[in-house]
Write a protein that binds this DNA or RNA. Structure first.
Lengths: 257, 257
DNA sequence: AAGTGGTCTAGACCACTTG
DNA sequence: AAGTGGTCTAGACCACTTT
């Protein structure tokens, strides 16, 4: 071998940026741009390796990371697919409220969701800041009431830029088949990959109290969630008011091994 | 090559149990048994590969998983070490309370911890069940008050089997240098690798209220945590009462990418 | 210079799914 | 039987840390 060429020529030479990260970035870009749509199957690993001019092992490393992030799904013998925010296993990545009597870490229950309000509005300053928008930018304001075991337990207030969901209307929102994030993904190509949440105790505002069957001012759990897409870009701001008399917020800190 | 032998003979033949998991299990066993003490350095990857009669790549896969679980720590050019539950980066794996004004996901503050009570007692039925103990088994009951920004914010009630921490006494507990989980690990070889938490709103009991400077019955956040060691074995039960007037519980759902 | 982990390759073989 | 991902190997070379 002459000198520094390993075997085949990689992407570039100077400022060599770690191949498997390049591959991963490109896969993410192709998912975002719709080349690989949600639920779609990726080329097999040998093909991907050829396209990127890297070895199969390097492709596997990139794919493995995206699988760990719930972006891709591998199925042995079938192929690798772009993850969808629809199905059971994805629902509870974001819905952390479960019945108190439920088994520890056990199967959880799907909520009944009722749309309470759908409006167009403008972003308040703190909302604009959190969502990286201009102050006063157009946003949707959506309110939902979620019921578990037949009881209204959660009151959600959602704020999201209209620019991200062009043409969304009340009918479209209500007639969705899966989750809200599933709608963002399937109808607008916007994939939620994570969220930051902050929880505290609050006194129920009159509207929340009425919706949840509580006295105004009753103590409730307040969850402020900033949902993120790739590269931690903020997408949606959501405040959930939860009646925790019979339900808990469940959190798993490293369920390793 | 004759037939089924790849190159060198692996651990066993029939019911071949996936080599990198075997290696991982053995590494965990060696950490639990003290062969590799907390903070100690592991043999280099070539040596480990020889010992386990597998390739370096297989060792690397096992080690990589344990690094992801915060059990091992890799340092390029230096070696691989058994993680310690002491340092800054480990503290906030379990302390999720942060000032509301703090930057989102930014650096957090270390608490001042004051021991409020230390007693020997017996496990109540629900405690015994959660901790997989016999009803009435001997336990320590420890209470702490944690302060942030000079204000008492958290009241912790800890229950843990005496059998797991033989000879622990109040002086030893108070004179620890690091965190409580750091003490479990350094003094008793007991490593906490994760926890399940359930949160809800509660009314402050008189003792908690007094300790946190609240009116009795004031709304507080109640966190019930079951801390786990390897193989999800339950170790410690802890109920934290939190005054969330100026502090939040922060949770990150998949901070991917 | 020597030793460590980090990246990447190339290829063998196994396990699973589908036609 | 053909195609997919899953495991494992053996070895090259790079980046970093320490002596």
């Amino acid at each position: 071998m002459p000198d520094s060429t390993p075997v085949s020529t990689p992407v570039c030479r100077a400022d060599m940026p770690i191949l498997y990260r390049v591959v991963r970035r490109q896969l993410i870009a192709d998912i975002r741009s719709g080349v690989f749509p949600p639920g779609g199957m990726l080329p097999n690993e040998t093909d991907l390796a050829r396209r990127f001019a890297v070895s199969v092992g390097t492709v596997r490393r990139a794919v493995t990371e995206l699988v760990a992030d719930n972006v891709l799904v591998r199925q042995q013998g079938r192929g690798t697919f772009v993850g969808r925010l629809d199905r059971e296993r994805d629902m509870f990545q974001f819905l952390k409220i479960a019945a108190r009597n439920g088994a520890r870490g056990g199967a959880r229950e799907f909520p009944d969701v009722r749309l309470h309000a759908f409006a167009r509005s403008r972003a308040a300053p703190h909302e604009a800041q959190a969502l990286a928008l201009q102050a006063g930018e157009n946003v949707y304001r959506i309110e939902n009431v979620l019921s578990l075991q037949g009881r209204a337990v959660i009151h959600d207030r959602i704020v999201i830029a209209m620019a991200l969901l062009p043409g969304l209307d009340r009918r479209m929102f209500e007639s969705r088949s899966g989750t809200i994030y599933g709608l963002y993904q399937s109808a607008f190509g916007l994939t939620i990959v994570g969220a930051d949440e902050r929880l505290r105790v609050d006194a129920a505002a009159p509207d929340s109290a009425a919706l949840l069957g509580l006295a105004p001012g009753a103590p409730v759990l307040r969850i402020e969630r900033l949902a993120l897409t790739f590269d931690r870009q903020p997408v949606e701001l959501r405040v959930s008011i939860v009646d925790t008399r019979e339900f808990d917020y469940v959190s798993n800190l490293q369920p390793a091994n």
